[in-house]
Design a protein around this nucleic acid. Structure first.
Lengths: 126, 126
DNA sequence: CCGGATCCTTGCCGATACTG
DNA sequence: CAGTATCGGCAAGGATCCGG
């Protein structure tokens, strides 16, 4: 009885922990810059400066910040070549490529509904 | 010759317009609260207050703001019942349900990689 | 070339109060 | 109950400099 209660409590605690972790990850990942970086990277390997060009309008700071975050979560791999000047390359990991697939879906969705959304906006703004 | 040049130019202009529109939509949609609202709504019809309960941690203001934005883009439909007290219900439109499918993908992805990401974090933080 | 640190501005977001 | 408006704190994000 007592042990069962304890077990239930710890299971609940586990569930709540997993939930908050999931929310944390979702918050990390569900933001404009992170998704654009992942989409830009695709299945390529790009240098920092190339990524900066590829992700339209991103600042130096946002790019490094998001790359650190993605690296921390194991979604991108960071390869440093100790040359001079230094050379750093970024690649999606396998989990990262998994996420990329869903981002691709979002992009397709956007393209597909461009016109319809534009119409909806015009109607709403009137 | 001249007309062809003009045609090319206007086609380029169209492409650039579509691009910036796409980026605009992406920026609207690719944010934590919007995605959580869409996911929570699912295929149900919910009142404002129910939605507020369903989307953990969202403030009154953020919820209205994002709902307006989603309505403007034609992703949710807003039904007002002129009773007293008032009653307002929100439902995903067909384009909204399309987007929902990709958000579902993101959620599945998160669940699937919870452990692996937790590990990656531990390694990174050391 | 890359990235960290600093300063400074902007705008996000929460709290509160008020209308229908 | 749902929505709008206002204010204020604070964190996000840009510009710049320096250091590896």
């Amino acid at each position: 009885m007592v042990t069962k209660q304890l077990k239930d409590l710890s299971e609940d605690a586990d569930l709540r922990r997993a939930d908050s972790l999931a929310r944390e990850i979702f918050s990390d990942v569900a933001n404009k810059w992170a998704l654009l970086i992942i989409e830009t990277l695709g299945d390529r390997t790009l240098r920092f400066s190339e990524l900066r060009k590829g992700v339209e309008g991103i600042s130096h700071k946002m790019l490094t910040q998001n790359l650190r975050m993605l690296e921390r979560n194991g979604l991108v791999e960071r390869e440093v070549y100790p040359t001079v000047p230094p050379r750093v390359e970024y690649t999606l990991t396998e989990p990262g490529r998994g996420l990329r697939a869903t981002v691709d879906g979002m992009c397709d969705w956007t393209q597909k509904h461009l016109g319809r959304i534009e119409d909806a906006r015009r109607r709403f703004d009137a």
